[in-house]
């Protein structure tokens, strides 16, 4: 069984992001990059699936040379091999999904894991698009997963609760926090990763239909207001909710 896990290389969530001078990209100075946090759940689930079903896991990432750091981390956690689809340009989600789908098809992977979203652009869309392009079933925002033979049973988060869904292979799963507890890249694993290969090739080109025109920070949130600490404040609270916030 070939299992693929698609990983992205994103700015550390603790980094203070600044918009670059071109107004369209982020300022790279001082920004540290990490494995997309949701992809860590995807990597862990791919490894657990391999441990249960056998086979091998390949990590695929699309981006510049720096993405090799993220692939290397996946290899250190236990992934068998890596593929870097090289591309330094900015692509939209569909164009990324098309290139990934092509590689997944070439790899012959039948189970594909993604993080539910990348915390850089937060589009939450590449996993689903890839499934659609491949003609695979897909389960998004998965918090538990069981694969037996061809049958896939997964629990996914929905508004206010969870639902259990069943489907069959081949499948794309996008991982949500809670799916598992990602393992550490053990120091032995890090050393073993040195001997694993990362195949590099140019990412297949597809036209991007989305163009970034301008990037700006969201406006500063207004500070909260305390109208009182006991029941006597209720009338004022209702007035503010109705007249200022206009939510009731």
């Amino acid at each position: 069984m070939k299992i693929a896990v698609c990983v992205s290389h994103v700015p550390d969530t603790a980094t203070r992001i600044k918009v670059g001078d071109d107004g369209k990209t982020i300022d790279q100075t001082g920004v540290t990059y990490v494995v997309n946090p949701y992809d860590e759940f995807a990597i862990e689930e791919a490894l657990k699936t391999k441990e249960a079903l056998g086979g091998e896991v390949v990590a695929i990432s699309l981006g510049g040379d720096q993405n090799k750091e993220t692939i290397r981390k996946a290899l250190a956690m236990g992934v068998d091999s890596g593929v870097l689809l090289k591309d330094d340009s900015q692509r939209d989600s569909l164009s990324v999904a098309k290139a990934l789908a092509e590689e997944i098809k070439a790899q012959g992977a039948e189970i594909v894991f993604f993080g539910k979203q990348s915390v850089d652009y937060d589009n939450s869309i590449v996993g689903q698009l890839t499934a659609e392009l491949l003609g695979y079933n897909s389960v998004t925002v998965a918090v538990s997963l069981k694969i037996e033979g061809d049958k896939v049973v997964a629990e996914r988060e929905i508004e206010g609760g969870k639902e259990v869904v069943e489907t069959t292979l081949p499948v794309v799963i996008t991982a949500q926090k809670g799916l598992n507890e990602p393992r550490y890249a053990s120091l032995k694993g890090i050393m073993a990763a040195k001997r694993k290969t990362i195949e590099e090739k140019p990412a297949a080109e597809f036209e991007s239909k989305v163009e970034v025109i301008r990037m700006k920070k969201p406006p500063e949130k207004a500070p909260g207001k305390i109208v009182g600490t006991d029941a006597s404040a209720a009338a004022e609270l209702v007035r503010l909710l109705r007249e200022e916030a206009k939510v009731i």
Binding site: E69, R72, K73, A76, Y184, A185, S186, L187, I190, M191, A193, K194
Partner: peptide, 14 residues
């Protein structure tokens, strides 16, 4: 180097 960085990351995560 890259390998030392990965090891440092693991310790920090731990």
């Amino acid at each position: 180097n890259e390998e030392q960085k990965l090891m440092a990351d693991t310790v920090r995560e731990f």
